[in-house]
Amino acid sequence: MSAPLLSVRDLIVEFPTRRGTLRALDGLSFDIAPGEVLGMVGESGAGKSLTGAAIIGLLEPPGRIAGGEIRLRSERIDTLSPDAMRRIRGKRIGMVFQDPLTSLNPLYTVARQLTETIRTHAPVSEAEARKRAVALLDRVGIPAAARRIDDYPHHFSGGMRQRVVIALALCAEPELVIADEPTTALDVSVQAQIIDLIKEICAERGASVLLITHDMGVIAETADRVAVLYAGRLAEIGPVREVITNAAHPYTRGLMGSIPTLTQETDRLVQIPGAMPRLTAIPQGCAFNPRCREVMDRCRTDRPEALTTGEGRQVACWLHADDAQEAARG
């Protein structure tokens, strides 16, 4: 693999509370290659959005990065000053949020919000910024962009607003786009269009994407690789096709089993017993061990490391300890 665009190593995010410190992300490591789309899945509370927020430097206080490092093109960014980090936001890392209805400031026209962002990152005139803004809106598929640009956000439908949001996130040509559940709040009929748009426009500009979602279908269609998160830890990461057809971690298998298929008639979907542990009560050893069907004694005491079992493929599960040794030898 070429030098990664983004490299996250042993990332720990903590929330100090009155009853002790909660560890929301615990030793998370992954890379994103230039131009790659990395999907990130997991249940609510697994730490997906938190990962995005930590990378872009917008963790809500009192949340803080307590360990590990984040590098963008081998430059460390988690220790930058607030102002230096601000310059990276929008310019080198763009972000698309979940709800397009609330992501835009209702009191300003789309033109004002776009030109403001463009001029924050590039020394261009108002007229030039406006020209770029129109071209960008046109590119994200807003019909009659030159006319619609002076409209206010409430004049646009949900899908159109998400296109505007994408235009805003991309207007300074970032190298990495973090899309945090970009389609969850949208109509099903519009979801596919928005996902296609993000993928297309990022491919065009060579930008990498971190696509955070709980929709495996979206991941399957869009991502190159997928990372599965469980209780703030990486369960499994690997090429999408391999993870879907040949999941290695029992949790991933459970996830895949819970997706209904059209070809097979099933009365009941497979279900993982229990629920994800709360951050205050993460079990010792593997966080998944109380729900795991294949639990071993070792899982209850030792936490599994992320074991490399193939090309770009890692699993944090003791079941694969032997495979990993083999892969290392071969």
């Binding site: 601000r86 936001r89 949020f97 400031n105 403001e116 924050t120 949001v165 996130a169 207007c171 300074a172």
Partner: peptide, 10 residues
């Protein structure tokens, strides 16, 4: 929209 404004580096 404030979070998004920050995420755009304003």
């Amino acid at each position: 929209y404030i979070k998004f404004a920050r995420a755009r580096g304003l």
